[in-house]
Design a binder for these strands. Structure first.
Length: 180
DNA sequence: CAATAGATCATCT
DNA sequence: GATGATCTATTGC
C-alpha cells in the first residue's frame, strides 16, 4: 500500500488518450476483506498475486470495468485501484467513448468512467504496464500538490480504513468521494 | 445541490 | 443463486 500515494500525479497512457491520476485506493491482501484478493487465489485474482507493475482489470456490476495496478511482489496480494483521472490528451476520443459526459470533469470521474474513457477492457487484464499497450509514466516535473487521505468508497467491508488517496482540491476527483 | 433506487453479469458459494 | 472496489437517472430540497 506504500506505493499507492506514488501513483498520484502519474500519467496513464493508452493509445492517444492520456490522463493524470488524481485519485486512487489501496487494496491489500488476505487481511483486507474489501479486496477481491482476501479470499485467496481464484482464477480472477491470480493477477493480483502475480508480478507487480501489471494491470488488473475486472468487470463489476454487469456494466463496468475497473482498473488496478498490481503492487506487491509475486506471491503477495496488493493492488491500487485507479478511481479518477484528469484528462490530458485525446479528449475528442474520450468524448466519443462517453457521449453522456458533457463536461471534461465527467470524462474520467470514477473507476468505471475512466476505463470507458480510456478504452480499457478486460483484454488488458494482466498486461505489462511498461511494455504493453497501456503504460504509466511519471511527469517530468514532480507535481506539487496537497494529498488528502480518507476512507474508501463504494465498499461494504472495512469501509473505514483510510486507504484512499487523492489530490486535494482537484475538481476531477469524484463527487462520491467528496466526504470529508 | 444532495440523496435514493435501479440496471445487469462475471465470479464465487 | 447471491453478491459486488459502480454509474446514471430521477426525485426531493
Amino acid at each position: 500500500m506504500e506505493v499507492a500515494p506514488d501513483c498520484l500525479g502519474k500519467v496513464l497512457v493508452h493509445g492517444r488518450a492520456a490522463g493524470r491520476i488524481v485519485e486512487v485506493e489501496a487494496y491489500l491482501g488476505l487481511d483486507d476483506l474489501a479486496a477481491h484478493a482476501s479470499r485467496g487465489i481464484t482464477p480472477r485474482t491470480r493477477v493480483i498475486f502475480g508480478e507487480p507493475g501489471h494491470a488488473y482489470v475486472y468487470f463489476i456490476y454487469g456494466r463496468y470495468d475497473c482498473l488496478n495496478f498490481t503492487a506487491e511482489p509475486e506471491g503477495q496480494a496488493g493492488c491500487v485501484l485507479i478511481r479518477a483521472l484528469e484528462p490530458l490528451s485525446g479528449l475528442a476520443l474520450m468524448h466519443r467513448r462517453r457521449p453522456k459526459a458533457k463536461r471534461i470533469e465527467e470524462l474520467a470521474r470514477g473507476p468505471g468512467c475512466l476505463t470507458m474513457a480510456m478504452g480499457i477492457t478486460r483484454r488488458l487484464n494482466g498486461s505489462d504496464l511498461v511494455e504493453g499497450a497501456l503504460t504509466v509514466r511519471a511527469m517530468r516535473e514532480p507535481a506539487s500538490f496537497e494529498m488528502g487521505v480518507s476512507a474508501r468508497i463504494g465498499i461494504t467491508k472495512c469501509a473505514d480504513w483510510p486507504l484512499r488517496f487523492f489530490v486535494k482540491g482537484n475538481r476531477f476527483v469524484s463527487r462520491y468521494s467528496a466526504r470529508s
